[in-house]
Amino acid sequence: MSQAAKRGLAARRLFERLLPRIVVSPLFAASLFFVYGFIAWTVYISFTRSGVLPSYTLDGLSQYIRLWATPRWQVALGNLFIFCTLFIALCTAIGVLLAILLDQRIRIEGAIRTVYLYPMALSFIVTGTAWKWILNPGLGIERLMHSMGFAGFRFDWLVNPKMAIYTVVIAGVWQSSGYVMALFLAGLRSVDDEIIKAAAIDGAGPLRTYASVVLPIMRPVFLSSFIILAHLAIKSFDLVVALTGGGPGYATDMPATFMYSFAFQRSELGTAAASAVMMLATILAVIVPYLYSELRGANK
């Protein structure tokens, strides 16, 4: 073989060996730019005096101080807390209950499961639109109750600043609880039959078997559904926009709608960036420990 041909072959081999890296690197670069680069930019902007236009002069924590002094941000955080707590608690309770009930040899289980889960296929905008109509203070549930004879029934949560956030909870739970049911049902189905048989021989009835044997085994499912729901809750934007538009006033604002409004409607870039960074920090606080333990578990 000639010297040149040998060198050609060596070069081709090297290329073959590097090919996987060559394929991955543009994608990785894109992710570095669009995720990490953008996060860095947003974080930087949050430390500047940027208003309508970005300014690149650092200004310390001024935007954060402004943010935390804004009553609307405080409302948004309060709402997030209420929403997160109720949304996670109700979705988990309903999801676990339905999963256990569906696990009792129901012949039409497939059909029921389909019904419980279909809201997950809808856009939050559709869900919001539907519930906005159902909860309509004049023509919605209130009218329905009146026609059923409850003349004094009043239901104005949608336009009541104190109660409006709970309508977001109602719609959110309607959409997402089926998902939790599906996660738990899959979890229940993966429990070794023999463990349930062993519990039967040990004298545990169905209730005790679930409470004392099966649900403790479901700990990872509780954890991952908590993560998913918390993630959904912190990011929730569409549902609020479609259902209440953040109103009445800004009574149902959440960090996500706050950020959008400051960024695109009021053009206060610095404050918007600071609120986005706060959201990121919240999600990191929930997810990093989880991801860390997951990846460590996977490496074992």
């Binding site: 669009f34 995720v35 953008f38 996060i39 912190i234 990011k235 609120s275 959201m279 990121l280």
Partner: peptide
Amino acid sequence: IPFQVVLL
């Protein structure tokens, strides 16, 4: 990530 952090 919450996409708000990359919107701007």
